[in-house]
Simulated scan of single mutants.
Amino acid sequence: MVQGTQMRRHLCGIQTAWTDAGQAEAAVAALAGAIERDGVGHIIVFFSPAYDTEALTAALGARFPDIGITGCTTSGGISPAGPIDRGLVAIAFPRRGFRIVAGVLTQIARLDVEGAATTVRGLRRLLDQGRPDGGTGHRFAISLIDALANAEETVVSAVAWALDGIPLVGGSAGDDLAFRSTVLIHDGKAHRDAAVILLVETEFPIRIFKSDNFEPTNRKFVVTAAREEERRVYELNAEPAAREYAMAVGLDPESLTPMSFAAYPLAVKIGGEYYCRSISRVEPDGSLTFFCAIGEGVVMTLAQPRDIVEATRAELDALDTALGGLDLVLGFDCVFRRLDAESRQVRHRIADLYRRYGVVGFETYGEQYRSMHLNQTFTGIAIGRVEGR
């Protein structure tokens, strides 16, 4: 595990810094001592839910005045040196080579879709206004969403519509599997029941991506009773949900844990492809709560994991080849992938891959990719090497 405070400057000019400091003010002080602030335009921070969020936002504002700051709580950070179970990871984007605009969508549990689309279109106009004459930069969008608002599908649909072809990736904020409070920060304020959207334009080559490591089996479940607004399933195949799921995977319903859900994911088929719909927890009444929207009549398929190390290696190798070398990967990695890797005792091998390819990011409660909200997936933006900068 990471210890102390470190910083790395990438070829594109981005600085990544990370610390395992136990208190918010100490963590920000460590970052301020590591990051060279001249020329920095925007900083994204992924931080432990153990930090006092108000103290963190105040300290960031005091240490990095006149710099845009956005971030969220996590279920673990990913630094270029390895995983961070407690602490803070920061990505400092330079003004040279990157232009970033950002905004907040509020009250997303009751999202005004037209209002959200108007906000995103306003961000696009801001990005257009600052574009150099004849500019042909590559564009992408990042979403950070309060997972406990249960609104990712609505948010992603509205945002993707308004982006009009700009690709979107992102992650849902976590809180170390406590499911009590996930928090976003943006420009000195803490937000709940909200989403932050960043639009980025860069002159560097990029690829967005998604990777998973599961494949469908022949075992099917039909959701026969559910409360969609709560993402809660009461019956599968007309049987109590937890019991039916546990019987299918050969476990005792009383012994189901996040490790169980990570090892035996469920998936739905959309447009010919399977997408994970991960279970977050068993409720006392034997119902199952999910990380994604789920409703009555949905058919789910029990999936079986493939080799997570080889699947991840293949994706990063392909990105490395396509971009002529990877400089940095900003990644959003489902916390259940970490649990699965731990249960198979291969987390260190995933960490080695992430160090080799310069992955930085956080462990999420859900991932966004284009117009989809996903689970048990690794999504992100890969930035290619440009020598001589």
Rank of each mutant, 00 (worst) to 15 (best):
R277I: 03
F209Q: 08
R277G: 03
V222D: 10
V156Y: 02
H138I: 02
S48Y: 03
T57Y: 05
F332L: 08
G384F: 06
L148K: 09
A293Q: 12
F46C: 02
S280G: 11
I67V: 15
I270D: 12
E229G: 07
F209G: 09
A190R: 11
V159W: 12
S287E: 08
E273T: 10
M247P: 00
L127A: 11
P94Y: 07
N218V: 11
R124H: 04
I185P: 00
Q368P: 01
L266R: 02
G170C: 07
M247F: 13
K269W: 03
V223D: 01
E254T: 02
V196F: 08
R8E: 13
E153K: 12
V40I: 15
T202L: 05
V196L: 09
A194L: 05
Y357L: 06
R37T: 14
A303W: 00
A158L: 05
D176T: 13
L328W: 02
G61S: 11
L144H: 07
T379D: 11
A29Q: 14
D320I: 00
G324L: 09
R313H: 11
T119L: 15
G76M: 10
S157D: 14
Q23A: 14
A34H: 11
A263T: 03
D187I: 00
R281H: 14
I91Y: 09
R63W: 08
T73F: 13
G174P: 00
G271K: 01
G388P: 00
H42V: 04
V156M: 04
D352V: 06
A62K: 11
Y274Q: 07
T106I: 04
V223C: 08
A322K: 01
D285N: 10
R125S: 04
L330A: 11
V359G: 02
R355T: 12
G250S: 04
G325R: 01
F46T: 00
R281Q: 14
N375D: 14
I84A: 09
S287I: 07
V2F: 14
T289S: 14
V360C: 14
E273N: 09
R281G: 10
D66A: 13
F261P: 10
T74M: 15
A173R: 04
V40S: 09
I67C: 14
P132V: 11
P205N: 06
R370Q: 13
D146R: 03
P240N: 14
L353R: 01
I350R: 12
E201K: 03
A117Q: 15
N218L: 08
A195W: 03
T74W: 05
D146G: 04
I279S: 12
L105W: 09
T217K: 06
P132S: 13
R180H: 15
V156T: 15
D327R: 00
Y274T: 03
A178M: 04
R99S: 13
G41I: 05
G286K: 01
I308N: 14
A149N: 02
A226N: 03
T377G: 12
A246C: 03
L123V: 06
L11G: 06
E25H: 07
G188V: 05
E152S: 06
T301G: 11
I381A: 10
N213V: 01
A109C: 13
R338G: 12
L199K: 02
L330C: 09
D112T: 04
V196K: 07
V359F: 10
A194W: 06
S211I: 07
